[in-house]
Design a protein around this nucleic acid. Structure first.
Lengths: 190, 190
DNA sequence: GTACACATGTAACCGGTTACATGATTGC
DNA sequence: GCAATCATGTAACCGGTTACATGTGTAC
């Protein structure tokens, strides 16, 4: 959906593909199944989204495909990250967590977090969680202030919808704190 | 992002615009500000998204614009729903809440809910909340089962990310129950 | 022998993003 | 005088959706 001027920002789908391929080289079909069957849903599982995305990533040198069972009547192409793809993934995962990251929805942040350990190691997660918790707390405070100030001017369902958002952000913030504690505990006893 | 074959499904942005214009006829600039300043964030506030979307809706007869302060040097165009736009909005808001609705993220469901009272009245919300709660409960159960079954096979951050999703859905489900009770209470004493 | 899972694509459409463009008004 | 706000657009790009297309392997 967007393209950095020079830095080649990844779309969510491309990020997800790189992250999955980093964890485990696999075919387009297996990636489709992952989008169907795992909680990674919300990505389309249609071939029309995944195969072109893979072709793009390959054209840009992020991934490389090797054909398996070439002689047989049912070959398949297994994709893996190139060194360049690994760097791209790491760069994407390292982008700072800002106000915008949480304002536009936490999907991207959580997707990146899911891949953090695999691609950057456990140490990298501490800062991520700290920044995420900071921004979530700020955002939550702002949402609550907004709710307090404007609650009466809205319809009942409008108000309730806002409260749903507040409850969601609150849950994510609590989760971030729990997760940070878990990470700290694990770091002491690896 | 998509187009129903014949039924002219609305994009999220178009739905948001119709909902906002139904609540209060206003100009493109005011809509932009709404996306900047209210918790409706996550829609782009850039003129390049809103003005073309308004032009589309007008071309399809959903909205009508009237130029205000026409003689002055700073005119502006205030948009309002046509009768057809009202019907389109109502149809969109009436679409059933299914498994897919929650699997792909609850953004659309919550956006629609926010406009429900204004466009369909309080009575319409009861069924919506019931369906939403049902689907959220199913989805939550599925997520928990998945977590239990696959937790060990994942990286730590992968597991934590899943737990974040579970916490979020859980929070939304609790909210849905609270909201249903609030609606019921209000219906008795309108 | 037929339905379903495996496996990979292409092509048209279109909506959102980014960047560019223009000019008036208000407040300091 | 200059910056910020008001106000509205256009144009190129490109990625995701939908629909179409094709053929094999396996289990009943």
């Amino acid at each position: 959906m967007r393209r950095g001027r020079r830095t080649e920002t990844l779309s969510l789908l491309e990020g997800a593909l790189l992250g999955l391929l980093h964890a485990q080289p696999q075919s387009g079909y297996q990636l489709r199944k992952a989008f169907q069957e795992t909680p990674l849903a919300h990505f389309s599982d249609s071939p029309g989204s995944i195969y072109p995305a893979l072709a793009r990533l390959r054209a840009r040198g992020r991934i490389r495909g090797t054909v398996e069972r070439a002689g047989t009547l049912r070959p398949r192409e297994r994709f893996a990250l190139t060194r360049d793809g690994e760097l791209t993934l790491q760069t994407w995962l390292s982008e700072p967590v800002t106000r915008e990251t949480v304002r536009h929805g936490t999907d991207e942040a959580m997707l990146r977090f899911a891949f953090l350990e695999g691609a950057l190691g456990r140490r990298a997660t501490t800062g991520f969680l700290r920044d995420l918790a900071r921004e979530l707390a700020d955002y939550l405070e702002w949402l609550r202030a907004w709710h307090k100030a404007r609650a009466r001017a809205q319809t009942l369902t409008g108000r309730l919808a806002l409260e749903s958002g507040i409850a969601s952000v609150d849950a994510q913030l609590r989760w971030a704190h729990r997760a940070a504690r878990r990470m700290a505990a694990v770091e002491k006893a690896p």
